[in-house]
């Protein structure tokens, strides 16, 4: 009975499934080809473009890793500190904006959200001059400070609307139990806001991890480059060594793949339900 039912439902899904399957194949095809090629020598690649071929050249991976690992470590450090700073600062600021009334609150908050309309490309050149005059060129501070301030705009807004949506009774209960304001914040509000903090962390990670232009402008030393910029360097250094080049591409996709494996469900539900609609 159940079997027949699922069969019938499956048939109704069939046309959609076929289209989705075709779409999925086209989506993954370039990625699969990159992975296949990453195991080939140049001779194998020119000789046989499409199919995998023995012997596998694992040496491609070790020579690519020797260069890529430093960029990955740099990016983890830069993006990691950016995420921590944004999570702390945006939670505090969002909490203050959500839970208190004080003079100039609206003006201050407008000072945050109007920046959503100011594009990064407008501020690129003057911001470079500013950062150069502050002596931060070619240091991680140039990246982290600008990523944090850029990310704060949206993050504070998201945190504020999340804290506003928490029911008053929760806070009342904590106040009745004699909690001070900072205790309410740390022991009640932050744990409840964990899903939103995760969303903020994820969006910050993706935007800082993928930023190419700002590092390109401010970082010059090869051993300080974050991944996106390092890959650009790497791709011109190994332009015609296809196996090593593609092995490097595969290696550099692994960090986000790990994050994705752990936090994907959270990320999808965070973006599809709620936060964006408001």
């Amino acid at each position: 009975m159940t079997k027949r039912k699922s069969l019938r439902l499956g048939n109704r899904d069939l046309p959609f499934q076929m289209v989705l399957l075709a779409f999925g194949i086209v989506t993954f095809f370039p990625l699969v080809l990159v992975v296949i090629t990453s195991f080939k020598s140049n001779t194998q690649f020119y000789h046989n473009f499409w199919l995998p071929e023995l012997p596998l050249h694992l040496g491609n991976y070790s020579s690519a890793f020797r260069i890529i690992w430093r960029f990955i470590v740099n990016s983890v450090l830069y993006s990691g500190s950016t995420i921590c700073l944004i999570a702390v600062i945006a939670s505090v600021a969002g909490y203050v904006f959500a839970r208190f009334h004080f003079p100039f609150k609206t003006a201050l908050f407008l000072g945050f959200i109007t920046l959503i309309m100011v594009p990064g490309v407008l501020t690129l050149a003057p911001r470079f001059v500013l950062v150069r005059d502050l002596g931060m060129v070619n240091t991680p501070y140039a990246l982290i400070s600008v990523w944090v301030s850029g990310g704060l705009v949206l993050s504070t807004w998201l945190m504020r609307s999340y804290f506003e949506s928490l029911p008053q009774e929760l806070f009342d209960a904590a106040y009745v139990d004699g909690a001070a304001e900072w205790q309410v914040f740390i022991y009640v509000s932050v744990p409840l806001a964990r899903p939103m903090i995760a969303t903020v962390a994820m969006t910050t990670l993706i935007s800082s991890w993928n930023d190419l232009i700002w590092p390109l402008v401010t970082i010059t030393d090869k051993d300080k480059m974050p991944l996106a910029m390092g890959l650009m360097q790497f791709s011109s250094d190994f332009e015609t060594d296809w196996g090593t080049l593609f092995a490097g591409y595969v290696i550099s996709s692994i960090p986000l793949l790990c994050v994705f494996a752990v936090a994907m469900r959270q990320f999808i539900s965070g973006l599809t339900s709620g936060s964006i609609k408001a």
Binding site: I89, A90, A93, L108, G111, F112, L115, V118, L122, T123, P126, R127, V129, L130, S145, V146, V148, S149, G150, L152, V153, T156
Partner: peptide, 15 residues
């Protein structure tokens, strides 16, 4: 946050 936005966002925008 206000100081950071003033320095790294508002100042370059007006500049």
């Amino acid at each position: 946050p206000v100081a950071m936005l003033l320095i790294f966002e508002w100042l370059p925008a007006f500049s």
